[in-house]
């Protein structure tokens, strides 16, 4: 009897200990969650608090002069590069996604897909270095818009290709079969059925890829170079500024104005990236609402 009692208390102690351990683990999990959430808020708040108090229109509307002036040349440069990436990488990426989802099969498909995924994992500075020794030096393009946007496109094409492929694969088979039964040919089906229903996904992938492109620095430093003049549209021999360069170069200067500009550029970058992410979320939300009502 006494021994039973002892065993029971022992079990009770152990259960209590196990429950306490579980509780401790849960609180550790909550701390982990905080560790994940806090940095993003902290960074955004920090940059905004340093940039907003002295932000003015002149920052956006005047080009840089030495360590002062504004960021107009960098803003125009970033928009220009991003637009170029949208055209070049957008076309190649979407086409590649169409091929992988509609035509490619077996070994070919997995090799192409694998190459694309691996390409996305190559460090950005390595891609930048190769862009420099090939396009800038060997092709004699000099620091230029063309070299910068091709280098950047190499980095984001895999992402666009992947999102396009997956969106096209998610088009219900019944849509395609229905269209076939109605006598549409393959070209019409791709255009009016598959691409149309996959469009929100494709556009979302494209937008997220542009958000990545906006924030890249390493691939551009030695391909696009830098210039305080407003960019012109020549593809070669046309070095140009971009916002990430301003952050990278001005933060370390012994001038309060330059450090301010660095934070201004960081703030504009965050605003751009946030706008792109929000746009992609809105598209996704709208698309899923339509799907539910259909």
């Amino acid at each position: 009897m006494a021994r039973n009692q002892e065993a029971l208390t022992r079990i009770g102690v152990r259960t209590r200990r196990r429950k306490a351990a579980s509780g401790a683990a849960i609180s550790l999990g909550v701390i982990a969650l905080a560790l994940v959430i806090v940095p993003s808020i902290w960074i955004v708040a920090q940059v905004a608090s340093k940039a907003l108090p002295h932000m003015s229109w002149s920052v956006i509307t005047t080009p840089g002069v030495g360590l002062g002036g504004g960021l107009e040349n960098e803003i125009v440069g970033t928009l220009l590069i991003t637009f170029g990436v949208a055209v070049v990488a957008g076309f190649i990426g979407v086409m590649s996604g169409i091929y992988l989802s509609q035509f490619a099969r077996g070994r070919t498909a997995s090799v192409l897909r694998g190459a694309s995924e691996v390409l996305a994992g190559i460090p950005s500075i390595v891609v930048g270095y190769v862009g420099y020794v090939s396009m800038v030096v060997a092709f004699h393009w000099g620091f230029s818009l063309g070299a910068g946007l091709i280098t950047l496109s190499v980095m984001v094409v895999p992402y666009i290709a992947k999102t396009t492929e997956v969106s096209l694969r998610q088009v219900p088979t019944s849509y395609v079969e229905g269209a076939e039964a109605l006598g549409l040919n393959a070209g019409q089906i791709l255009r009016t059925i598959s691409l149309r229903s996959a469009l929100p996904g494709i556009v979302t992938g494209l937008i997220v890829a542009l958000a990545i492109a906006v924030g890249e620095t390493a691939p551009l430093l030695y391909t696009a170079g830098y210039s305080q003049n407003l960019p012109h549209l020549g593809l070669t021999h046309s070095p140009l500024g971009y916002l990430t360069y301003a952050v990278w170069t001005f933060y370390n200067e012994p001038s309060a104005r330059a450090i301010q500009l660095s934070f201004d550029a960081a703030f504009l970058l965050i605003v751009l990236v946030l706008a792109l992410i929000t746009a992609s979320r809105i598209i996704v939300a709208r698309a899923s609402r339509h799907r539910e009502s259909a």
Binding site: L33, V36, I37, T217, W248, L269
Partner: peptide
């Protein structure tokens, strides 16, 4: 909601991380 924060964290340019790291 966590997805939003992760997306934001993934979207912040690496120079901005650097800026935060070196000055803050």
């Amino acid at each position: 909601a966590l997805g939003v924060f992760l997306e934001l964290l993934a979207g912040i340019p690496s120079v901005v991380f650097g800026l935060w790291g070196t000055l803050t």
